[in-house]
Amino acid sequence: MVAELLRRTWAMTWKDVTVELRARERINAMLFFAALVLFIFNFALGPDRETLREVAPGLLWLAFLFTGMLGLGRSFQAERENECFEELLLTPGDRESIFFGKLAGNILFMVTAEALILPLFGILYNLDIWGLLPSLALVAFLGTVGFSAIGTLLAAMTAHLRAREVMLPLLLFPLTVPVILGSVRATEAILAGGGLSEVSHWLKLLGGFDVIFLVVCPLAFEFVLEE
């Protein structure tokens, strides 16, 4: 049963990635937007290196989250615009596989964007992050999983609403406060030179959040997709 779920999930992810590789409408927009955000921060904050250093973790995560949001918004709208929702529902097997497939795609796109943002951030703002990359990557991954789990569910939901572009961030940000808080604090401690052990309780919070919503969201997804 688990093997079956994995196979279906993989098929779903593969479909999304192939579509993306052909059209590149999502990932290009995300990468360019990410670069722009980093660019704009500079004008918003001025040249003061000290201020920048202090707010760096928050900025980094704002860039991650806004870019991720851009990708999440597209994940079901493309299906809706091309009227593929009905076909999606006809996929055999449990609906969970659709959720996990979409989620894996969303995480993949967001991680790709983060892989660009992180080094670019280090270069543009002259931060010495190179030795810290593994621990930063772990925090980024844990945060991304939690954010995307709720994000994928809400994206499926808001795709059927009026004013869907505004509703996704309005619902997503309040719900993901624990993830945002945990990720930013953990990143802050790591950038300040603390090891992973110093942020263990934030990692626990992120991990716990991920577990809870990876269990709840796919079950809730069934009720969202119902026609």
């Binding site: 709720i150 569910l153 809400l154 939901m157 059927h160 609403l161 619902l171 309040p174 719900l175 406060v177 624990p178 808080l181 945990g182 604090r185 309780h201 934030w202 919070l205 716990g208 959040f209 809870i212 919503f213 709840v216 969201c217 809730a220 009720f223 969202v224 119902e226």
Partner: peptide, 24 residues
């Protein structure tokens, strides 16, 4: 249906928010 799903997610979120914010 959406409202019900959101209400359940939101309620589950309360203890997590509690932990996060209190540590903060």
């Amino acid at each position: 249906r959406y409202g019900a799903v959101l209400a359940i997610l939101g309620f589950l979120d309360i203890p997590l928010n509690h932990l996060a914010v209190y540590w903060w």
